[in-house]
Design a protein around this nucleic acid. Structure first.
Lengths: 219, 219
DNA sequence: CCCCGGCTCCACCGGATGGTGGAGGCGGAA
DNA sequence: TTCCGCCTCCACCATCCGGTGGAGCCGGGG
């Protein structure tokens, strides 16, 4: 059976030659095409229908990220591995959001590159260690973590009713609206709002909204 | 020179034996201790000061995540690889936020496990492919992209001053406080707040806070 | 049994808020 | 220059909010 069909996209002939050599050394990988920039890649990918595209970012005419977006928009099923020298935080996130299956630095060892192509062809992701580190840092955001924990503990002190009222308050409702929506008297709502203020140690409803939203997600 | 010092933490004797065998097969890795649960791990790690800890999650007395938190709190420099059968989204994020350097599924090939320990010992992260996929999904979530975009476009209509006031409002300040903080008259603040309401098409300040926070990201 | 906490309401009050309709200054575009 | 948008303020007023000090009801626990 046929091997993994790979297209290499890079404006540097030396890089293309190098990649072709590395990947060609693996019997199960076939480099079926090359492109010199993103524009060119559109045609080559459309013609060759590869399983995997190795895509440089810095290229004339159309860069690798734009090319990735275009390919995805055109419904190409090719899995794309972004290959670059630098891994700025923004590039990594952009590439992954565009649907790149891999993000490798150009200092990746040849053997690892081959492994990456195989894995990506199987639908698995493949990131360079430093890229993984960045990704972890992105989800780890310790900043809101402390705030969130505090918000959660404070909100935990609220009774069921108070939490409902607090939610309504943070939805931007007035006391009258809350009363209608919870089938309560306005006086009751005011009481609950008051105890929410006390328990959260705040003095107005905007601050309640802050706590509720902090605890929610923020992810 | 000595190899990488590894401690294995798992309540299942068979798993411990298996890991010991796998890691023992690598000449540069030394399994210097075992623990049967999180509690036990505290002592063993304190005594052996390993470079890497292979940590199961489901364990009696103290689970692997709690143990990871404790070790980090105690200032242990050991890099921790979480080993588990299931990779729920929550576990992955929790483990990484606690500072785990790796997250591997128990179906990881022995050779990959050895590679993982070496890489983690060098300070690089190591995640199983499915874990990486989850991580990517976590940062990619366009979540409330629509809402955020709407919030941004609406906020973009605000003038500089109005935006400052809107920010202050969403910080939970009263008009008087805002006036002081921006060196304005209270009347001016009220005017700005009013036009913010009009432009954002809302009727109270909590809703302003919602827009501002939606646009910010919370990512 | 009584007490306590939660839920439901009430009245009263001062201050904050939101809506309306102004006014004057200032800088840039027409 | 004239116009227009932005920023700065003003007054008036109805409403809403937030704080205080109640009250009655209910269910669980000491």
């Amino acid at each position: 059976m046929a091997g993994v069909r790979v297209v290499v996209v890079d404006d540097d002939p030396l890089v293309r030659a190098g990649l072709r050599m590395i990947l060609g050394g693996a019997p199960d990988l076939d480099v079926v095409g090359e492109a010199v920039d993103g524009q060119d890649a559109m045609d080559v990918v459309a013609r060759e229908l590869p399983d995997v595209v190795l895509m440089d970012i810095r290229m004339p005419r159309m860069d690798g990220l734009a090319a990735t977006r275009r390919l995805k928009e055109r419904g190409s099923t090719a899995r794309i591995i972004v290959l670059t020298t630098f891994d700025t935080d923004e590039m990594v996130l952009t590439a992954l959001q565009l649907g790149a299956a891999g993000f490798l630095l150009k200092d990746t060892a040849p053997a690892d590159l081959v492994v990456a192509v195989r894995r990506v062809a199987l639908g698995e992701p493949m990131l360079s260690p430093s890229v993984t580190t960045q990704l972890i840092a992105a989800v780890t955001r310790p900043s809101d973590d402390g705030r969130r924990r505090k918000a959660r503990t404070l909100l935990a002190r609220l009774t069921e009713r108070e939490r409902e009222v607090a939610d309504a308050v943070s939805a931007g409702m007035t006391n009258t609206e809350i009363a209608r929506s919870l089938h309560l008297g306005v006086a009751t709502v005011k009481t609950h709002v008051g105890s929410v203020f006390t328990k959260l140690e705040v003095t107005n409803r905007v601050q309640v909204a802050r706590y509720v939203h902090d605890a929610a997600d923020d992810r």
